[in-house]
Amino acid sequence: MTGRNKYRNAVNNVMLTLSGICAAVTVSMLFVILAYLVYNGFSSLNLDFFTQLPKPTGQVGGGMANAILGSAQVVLIASCFGLPIGFFAGIYLAEFGGKKFCMLVRYMADLLNGVPSIVIGIFAWTVLVVPMHHFSALAGGMALSLMLIPITARSTEQFLLEVPRSMREGALALGATKWKTIATVIVPAARHHDRHDSGRRPHLRRDGAAAVYRPQQRILEHRIFLADRNAAGDDFHSRRCSLRRLAQAGLGGGTCPADDGARR
């Protein structure tokens, strides 16, 4: 082995080791926290934890039944309203919309995505809680659904755009209408693509989970200011993808996300 090759292999090994150590440190923090929680909390996990109401401060016992049930109600209501609206809006953006209107919808969705949770909370308070004279799962669910809509819309759009143009054309060329193509080929293909591709491209899996999980996480964990510390849409692949496409366009790479684009 020449001196040059020895040097290159040494650098390779050092960098691999360094990155491995950093990865281990990152994961170990999570494991330490989890281990601490399990060590101290496991003994408190029993049937009462899931079925009883909390006891007043200072008293031993009780459970979190109200929080568990309330969370389920809020998530269910939010999903009933937010997911279908976001999903169909995403389909519109990816498949039907004109350039200018879509750009406006995307901009608005990203803007809504970046609105601090507290603002959406105040909106729900004003529109639902005050007229109803009490807090309710409905008010929480509607606030959460407002957060779900832009995220679901942009994620759905991104998933659908990942489906190759050739797949769309394959269905259209058989005499399918556009809606039939979307419902019977594009959406199933996007799901298939996610299942088979997310192993290679984990951001897709994360993005799908994010659509439902992240806004819920903010409310369920009462971390409503969490979003405010992030740049608008910073969490989401869809935003990065828009930037990627702009960058590609600037570099002359074109903006069409499909595999084969327009044939000439």
């Binding site: 190759p164 050739s166 797949m167 054309e169 269905a171 060329a173 005499g175 080929v185 199933p188």
Partner: peptide
């Protein structure tokens, strides 16, 4: 439907062979 088309790259749908064939007649 009357003027069918086959593309440069094979583009089967993410379905079974049977469902791929029956897709056109069905719709």
């Amino acid at each position: 439907r009357r003027v069918g088309m086959v593309f440069q790259r094979p583009n089967p749908f993410p379905k079974s062979i049977f469902e791929n064939i029956i897709y056109g007649p069905k719709i």
